[in-house]
Amino acid sequence: MKEDNSIQNIDIEELLLSKDYDSLTMEERSFADTQVDSPQEYSELRATLLSIKQVSSDEENVLIPHRIKDELIQKMESETTFFGGIAAFLFPKDVPLFRKPGLQFASIAMLLLLVVNIGISITDRPNAELAVNNIKQQERQLPLIEEEKKEEGFYDIEINNQEPEERKEVIAKPEVQLIEMDDEVFQVEVEKVAPANSLQVLEKESNTKFKKEVADAKSAGSPAYFDTKDITSYLEEDIVVTKLTDSVVVTNFNQSVAMADVATTRMRTNESTTVLMESVTLDNISTNGSKKKFKSASKSLKENEELIDFLFVAM
């Protein structure tokens, strides 16, 4: 390019600023002629350039508020502190809000927190629901179970939050336990039963009194009395039930005892003495439905008839 090569060596701008066309040397004029079409153009270019120089020198400066420097210095000083540097790194001013690293970190942290919380709530929910259902099912079924299992004496609690094949039948062992015991031991146990206490005491007293009278009669050789114990054992097989009274169920803690089949037999002696004999069959209701019968026999005297009637009424 002609323009480029010529200007490399001689600076046309210097010529225009310093000399008019007529003042140029021969060498300068020959160079100027390669750049301009005519001396007039040279003059016009010079005039324009001088005017521009004048205008630029007269140009007023842009007003710069002092706050800009203050802000920049403040920023510079904040950069020097450790936390200021971190803050400047996390929240730079010249980037959009969504591109600020601090905001991005905070968003990620919140997202993670949210995910973890949702995860925890999701994993916990099924159990919570099953637990709620369990309670409802139990509440709903308990009365039925009680109805169904009443006689058997145990509760069948089904765990409904498990699969049917996995359900476990939780058998609440009846608090009633079958105890085989001798008559004497049973008698002692029966004595412990509160409602029967008074009866037993009275019966015991009357028996003691009766035994004493019998013993006295024997020792006196009186034929009016005989040993009821022997008769009781003799009549055990052939006892005639004349009257079936109401059953009385006595509960001693976990043990149910039914006093039933109370038979009253009137036996005549030679002396036409009426001997009242009671045969009490105690049913022990067991959880498996089987019954074990305990039999107990007692005798009472004619003079105790009133007392015994009272006791029956009481029962």
């Binding site: 008019d20 010079r46 005039a47 324009t48 001088l50 005017s51 004048q54």
Partner: peptide
């Protein structure tokens, strides 16, 4: 700018 340049007027 030739019609506006003050220096042009001088020239």
């Amino acid at each position: 700018l030739k019609d506006f340049a003050p220096q042009m007027a001088k020239v």
